[in-house]
Design a binder for these strands. Structure first.
Lengths: 248, 248
DNA sequence: CGCAAGATTGAAGTACGTCAATTCCAGTGG
DNA sequence: CCACTGGAATTGACGTACTTCAATCTTGCG
């Protein structure tokens, strides 16, 4: 099933039981496929379902009066969008597919039921929303306080670690299905400048691009270059995680 | 008691019962006073208590290797910091007082107990965290995609509406206990440029400053200038709110 | 092969940053 | 009541990281 990525992600934080996993899988009502650029849910809609990315990349974005559509978050497999929005009358932002996507729909009440049945799962999902918030904070810092080349490096580091956490990286490389336009959008810079920053990182030997694949040549050096501190991702390292698992 | 602002804020969303209010007041274990610039809790600390601002302004911030301390959020009376952090091992950011502050401390378990006792209160606090997130998203948009003059206007609109919601505005003016340095920090611009943007807004007749008081001369025009859409604050207007209250 | 979307390049403009000087102002002590 | 102080606001001059526009080149793809 397509909840695997989510389970893998949550288990960074806490070991789930088979029963928890079954609950999660059962909460999926439906699976829908979206084309690149297709809207998944739009600002003003009343959210009926929680969305779970199973395959592909999606984005949270807003529409500005001048036509800009700034991206607020990348959503990759295992990312649950808006567990919480159930409370609000209407969406205050939109979701769209950045690449062809498979998205699972979990009805609000299925989530409610699930949460009632497992304390552990509740904590795990709560943790996931905390993570989203932490990422948002970090993006704000980066956007407001770092030059474009570091911003790009930072983003690449983050996405590599996030992709790795759901088993979608290979030898420090990952599929990055974005145009330079979209990449610039996230960082708040123009696509032209984005291109120049990519070239700078390439020139420094920090990254290589192979079509849509982003290859990080030297993660340590890239992290240093971008002043990337992985703390905010709250990824428990393997050792600590195993200790925790064994203790339970 | 100093939980009044919080109650006033929450009641924008949902009418609380007397019992709810009592529960809230009882969760306050202690009240502490902080000087301007004093740290309230620091990155890496293990959060023991949830903090509630009763008086003054505080800020969420991060410390960067280069010494910068970007501000991620303003916290004003009625704002609850980190209801959620209970889950995390350690803080991934810090809180400091921007002006002399009175902060109430609510122990984690007091919060837990309180939430167990009132479904309504649980929803209200959850709503408050959604609001924080929505504000964070809006700041990201603004920082990344709008010029400095609009960013400033946007911030002023937001803070006026937020202060108003807790009864701390007077005739479209409010106490803004910040240096231009701190103001610039939030918007990701230098203090010199901040100063020039303030002068621009003054020149346009949009705002006036009287010492530490920010006076908005024409809110509608300022909102238009800054392309400010108050939607994200999820402030229910008086009419809708009264309808809701009466229906309950 | 041919087309359209995207990547890359160059040139010229601008919004913003930095540095450093000056003015303003709230306290504080005499 | 005034003089003194240190922090903050303001100003000017100058540098630069970015933007925009427009052209060209590359690539995936029917």
């Amino acid at each position: 099933m397509g909840t695997d990525a989510l389970i893998q992600k949550l288990e960074q934080f806490i070991q789930l039981t088979e029963e928890d996993k079954r609950l999660l899988r059962n909460a999926v009502r439906d699976v829908r496929v979206f084309d690149r650029r297709e809207d998944i849910i739009h600002e003003g809609d009343r959210p009926e379902n929680v969305h779970l990315v199973m395959k592909g990349w999606a984005a949270r974005y807003k529409s500005l009066p001048n036509g800009d559509q700034p991206i607020l978050a990348f959503l990759i497999p295992g990312d649950l969008c808006d567990v919480h929005v159930a409370l609000l009358d209407e969406m205050d932002h939109s979701l769209k597919a950045l690449s062809p996507c498979r998205i699972a729909l979990l009805p609000r009440d299925a989530i409610q039921t699930m949460l009632k049945q497992s304390e552990r799962l509740t904590r795990a999902l709560w943790w996931a929303t905390l993570l989203d918030e932490a990422i948002l904070r970090e993006w704000l810092v980066t956007t407001g306080h770092r030059p474009a080349n570091q911003r790009l490096g930072h983003l690449i580091c983050e996405m590599l670690l996030r992709m790795r956490a759901v088993g979608l990286s290979k030898d420090d490389s990952f599929e990055l299905p974005l145009t330079q336009d979209e990449l610039g959008d996230v960082m708040g810079i123009s696509s032209v400048h984005t291109n120049r920053m990519i070239q700078e990182l390439r020139g420094e030997g920090l990254i290589t691009t192979e079509g849509k694949r982003m290859v990080v040549n030297d993660l340590d050096r890239l992290m240093e270059f971008a002043e990337f501190d992985p703390n905010y991702l709250h990824q428990v390292n393997k050792r600590a995680r195993l200790a925790r698992v064994n203790a339970s």
